[in-house]
Design a protein around this nucleic acid. Structure first.
Lengths: 153, 153
DNA sequence: AACAAATAGATTGCGCACAATCGAATCATG
DNA sequence: CATGATTCGATTGTGCGCAATCTATTTGTT
């Protein structure tokens, strides 16, 4: 057994809980995403585009808290797979607009069932999932606020 | 604004909440870990060793849900930094035992304050942190159980 | 003793995640 | 206008995270 007291005790550390559950979720999704040839981060990018098509790289990054160093190669792989198109914006040539292809839109159907399938092993009610999601999102917001505060120093 | 309904709506997805809060935590820890020359995964390995020294790679992996593909290079970097020693077990030459050096033990003091410093931006009481940690750990357990069940097929 | 199976760790290859840096395009200010 | 600052995205380099594979060692069975 591990100790359960003290500031360094692993069991008490919320950060590790999130770190490890995030990987566990990623592995759980993998079994459904592998047949589609998608990774979890690619799937999340598609989630964004299924909600709103034709976004710039920056807009996608803002929604997912990812920067171009992560997104550029990821988007190139999605483009190589034929799921998206990358085109420079005519109005502002600095921006690259990302739009779904027919293939990318077609994936949506198959992806629609995944969260439900993973969700049923969680043993949580819809309301519990909603409450937990909101609580976690609130924590993420506070961490971001404090980070951007620290960065301004 | 993003939509808030439908199975694919990002805001409703617990998985993304964990994915993004985990990165947010990692970034929050980074500002404290950078001065120590540690990454978050390296810090977590040290947390384990501060709790119990002289573990095998497998034992560390079991506690952290990581495999040798991740741990071997990470441990070599911790060894190169002088924080740990890696020695083959005399009784069972397949195993590599990981033990802290004086330098590795000395880091503990400086690391002791980090979770508290990050924790105070969360705006949660001690009990709320404990409850949330337990709830998240329970979810991780269920995801693991279902994964090992699926792997056995 | 002999040999198949299991186990521990290392290695390889791929895909994030992110800091740092760069070039090009745009904007702001005088 | 001019030009300095800002913004966007791409690029580079480092470090995970993990599947797949490999070797060496140990264990189990006969």
């Amino acid at each position: 057994m591990t100790k359960t007291t003290g500031p360094l005790a692993l069991g008490n550390q919320l950060c590790f809980a999130f770190y490890s559950v995030s990987h566990a979720f990623s592995r759980a999704y993998r079994q459904f995403l592998d047949p589609l040839g998608l990774t979890y981060p690619q799937y999340v990018v598609l989630l964004v585009l299924w909600e709103q098509d034709d976004l710039t790289v920056k807009e996608i990054g803002d929604r997912l808290f990812l920067d171009s160093g992560t997104l550029t190669p990821l988007l190139k792989r999605l483009e190589a797979a034929g799921h998206i198109r990358r085109t420079r914006d005519k109005k502002d040539e600095r921006q690259v607009r990302i739009s779904l292809t027919a293939s990318g839109r077609a994936l949506r159907e198959k992806a629609e069932e995944i969260p439900r399938q993973v969700g049923c092993v969680l043993g949580l009610s819809f309301d519990e999932v909603r409450a937990l999601t909101e609580q976690v999102a609130k924590l993420r917001g506070r961490l971001h606020d404090s980070a951007s505060l620290a960065a301004r120093t």
